[in-house]
Design a protein around this nucleic acid. Structure first.
Lengths: 156, 156
DNA sequence: ATGGTGAGTTCGGTTTTCCTACTCACTGGT
DNA sequence: ACCAGTGAGTAGGAAAACCGAACTCACCAT
């Protein structure tokens, strides 16, 4: 068995290569909340301005954000999520749910999301085919690239 | 309105503070796949060994992984996900789904996950209360800390 | 005795990140 | 006209993170 020179090909890694840098997902959070202006982002995220500028360029290049002018004189911009960007919102929701559950067990959630059904949102990841919630023990991974194996799902 | 010195309190940020560093979520991916040994992780993730060692310590400290001995002599270890760690799997699934969709639009997915229902897993984030898939326009955010506002969800 | 594996640590250098300050263009108030 | 304020960044240097390769140490196999 040859030692692989490259890491496992994987969409998780590919996606994280785009949005896995520090602050990138927080930028997306703010943009989804409607706070898409540079100084709002600086304040709400707490990122250094130069880093934020770099992240914004990267996210725009990746097609996750767009930069649109909302005032010509003086020229002012607003970043908004593209469709692809909005489709990352579920990632934010699952991250938030985990943090609420494990980092704020007293119920002192920093933010509550209300769903259109009237209830507070508790996001659950389900299988599109059968509708059941996804549990670890129900999953079997099949790497598509040759040479990459899994030793089987972790037993609890 | 006072200028906030601290960034917005948010479970997304809190969670990313634990697992948002480079490689952390990939470690979790490998561990969930059953590849929890140090050299497997190095090979499959492609991380430098020292960085990996740091990440592993951090994840163990955070209660996301445990380090267990699988051989006394010679002493050998394996990292496994705790229950809290397994609950981060939905994050991986949504990240993977996004990458499959937007970074591999030809259908050449690097990995396919099979669900126990027999179909390939297509993870969908739904509202636990009503069961509907979560869409951006159905969400309203309510920050709980005083002084933190949202300008309303981004309109498409 | 030699080679191999597993699980790291150490070393030295490169790249990122961080923080503070600064710029530049404009606006609104007096 | 003058001044403070806002929005969107750049500039510079220190601190931290990251990287690959080499090294350790304990054990096992031949």
């Amino acid at each position: 068995m040859a030692a692989p020179k490259h890491p496992r090909p994987c969409s998780v890694a590919d996606t994280l290569a785009l949005v896995g840098e520090k602050y990138s997902l927080l930028v997306l959070r703010e943009v989804c909340l409607g706070n898409g202006r540079f100084d709002q982002l600086v304040r709400n995220i707490g990122a250094p301005r130069d880093i934020l500028a770099t992240r914004l360029r990267r996210l725009v290049d990746a097609g996750i954000l767009t930069k649109r002018v909302y005032s010509e004189r003086p020229q002012r911009f607003e970043y908004r999520a593209t469709l692809a960007g909005l489709e990352l919102e579920p990632v934010l929701m699952t991250l938030m749910a985990w943090g609420d559950r494990h980092l704020h067990p007293d119920g002192d959630r920093p933010m509550v999301i209300e769903h259109s059904c009237g209830k507070d949102l508790a996001p659950v990841v389900t299988c599109a085919a059968c509708g059941d919630p996804v549990r670890h023990e129900d999953l079997t991974a099949h790497p598509q690239a040759p040479g990459w194996t899994v030793t089987g799902p972790q037993a609890t």
